[in-house]
Design a protein around this nucleic acid. Sequence first.
DNA 1: TACCTTTCTTAAGGTATCTTATTTTTTACC
DNA 2: GGTAAAAAATAAGATACCTTAAGAAAGGTA
Lengths: 175, 175
Amino acid sequence: MKSIKINSLKTYKKGEILLKQGETAKYGYLVKKGCLKSYTVDNVGKEHIMQFAPENWMISDLDSFTNQVPSSVSIETIEDCEIFLISKSDFIDIDSFDKEVVVDIANKFRNNLIASNKRILGLLSATSEQRYIDFTETYPTLVQRLPLKLIAAYIGVTPEYLSGIRRRMAKKSEH
Amino acid sequence: MKSIKINSLKTYKKGEILLKQGETAKYGYLVKKGCLKSYTVDNVGKEHIMQFAPENWMISDLDSFTNQVPSSVSIETIEDCEIFLISKSDFIDIDSFDKEVVVDIANKFRNNLIASNKRILGLLSATSEQRYIDFTETYPTLVQRLPLKLIAAYIGVTPEYLSGIRRRMAKKSEH
DNA sequence: TACCTTTCTTAAGGTATCTTATTTTTTACC
DNA sequence: GGTAAAAAATAAGATACCTTAAGAAAGGTA
């Protein structure tokens, strides 16, 4: 990715919204410091988290960013952040890149795709307790760092229910 | 993708297993005629469908195929099929491709990623009835073509429950 | 046509997860 | 350090979805 020029490094406070559901994504966000989330709010006001982006992760609505259609997610800081903004014009004209960069991009998409497919399988076939365990193994640092309700919105249960999962797991491991 | 050479076109009967969960994927499968499914069977014997591949779709376990690790899915014909096998050696050495081909591959990964992310959002936030409606809109031809139990395994409910969804939807639309 | 097999439907009872409400704990701020 | 606000824990009752089992419909084959 080294030959993609980075437009600007900006700082944000916790809780700022960088992209709103329904708007068109102008930027990809590369996190230098802090953590972002991409999420939807459904018609009964409940939040569902698509992705977390801690340090060195990249986040956007790929469909909106690439095809200039309305975004299906919002993106928001969940800690104070320093973030590189990568503009659409830097990114969309993939043909103008060096081949090496295109290979990097293809590999990045492929790895993201593998990760997304694993998540689909988990949502289809794993219990919520198992999805929580998977989360703690995949993101050991985030388990400590994120509030419970965000983890619940990521694995697909209510905060109350995740609280119960934790209690039952603690009881089990007592002996 | 035009400069990827195609190894061979093979024919299969309905119900043949092309890749078994746990084995390493040697091929990508490009469907000329018929339909494939990729799926897992969980520890209580229940089937969960990752993807359908009707005509012109490509299917494999991308992680297994790319990184030579055990596959997390099985792939099986659900109709009589004609299928192009694309071998790993044709595909994995992405650096040796023309740039144009690499751009095609990147775009294909990107589009798959967008589709997978939509499915994750659906699994997180939509009711099973809404996921069924989404399925009928995304794959109108498959709704008629596939048995109910496969659609149920794709949207993440039991066949009995999907049968109930259909009944309630029919009743609703009566007036 | 008749038979066998698979698919689909229906229904009763069970489990997982949600909703709502209340209490306790933690965090943020003056 | 004290107070307000947010987050987490707990619990009771409601709903979505599953399990099991049985019967009805549809498809394939002799």
